[in-house]
Amino acid sequence: MSDAHLTERQLVEGPEPVELTDEPITLSTHDPAGGSPPKGPASRRRRIALTVALVVGLAGAAALGTAGWRIAREKDVRLGTPDRVAGLTRDDSDRARSTADYLRSGFAADIELDRSVGTVYSDPADEKRAVLFFGGTTLLWQPERDLDSLFGLMADETGRVTDLRGVPAGRYGGVMKCGRTSGDGGDFAVCGWADHGSVAMGMFANRSVDESADLFRQIRDGVQTRG
Rank of each mutant, 00 (worst) to 15 (best):
Q142Y: 11
E127G: 06
R44H: 11
A130Y: 04
S116M: 04
A59F: 14
A67I: 05
D146Q: 12
R70V: 13
F134W: 12
T66F: 14
R70M: 13
F134V: 05
F133T: 00
A96R: 04
L113C: 08
V117S: 01
L79E: 03
V52W: 07
G57N: 03
G34C: 07
S93V: 09
P24L: 08
A61W: 07
L58K: 04
A125S: 15
D22C: 03
S98M: 11
S36I: 04
G118K: 03
I25T: 10
G68H: 07
L139Y: 14
T66N: 12
I25P: 04
T138I: 03
R47G: 06
A108I: 04
L50G: 05
A63G: 12
R70C: 02
T66L: 15
T51R: 08
A53N: 06
R115K: 14
Y102D: 13
K39P: 02
H30M: 06
A49Q: 10
P37A: 13
A109L: 05
P32F: 06
R90L: 10
E112Y: 06
V85R: 00
D31A: 10
L20C: 05
L113T: 06
V77F: 02
V52H: 07
G106H: 09
G40L: 10
R70D: 13
G35L: 11
V18I: 15
K39Y: 06
G118Q: 05
R97Q: 15
T21F: 14
L50F: 13
L139D: 12
L140D: 02
V120R: 01
T89G: 02
L54N: 05
K39E: 14
T137L: 01
A100M: 11
R145A: 14
A72E: 15
H30I: 05
D146V: 11
G136A: 04
E127W: 05
E16L: 13
L64D: 07
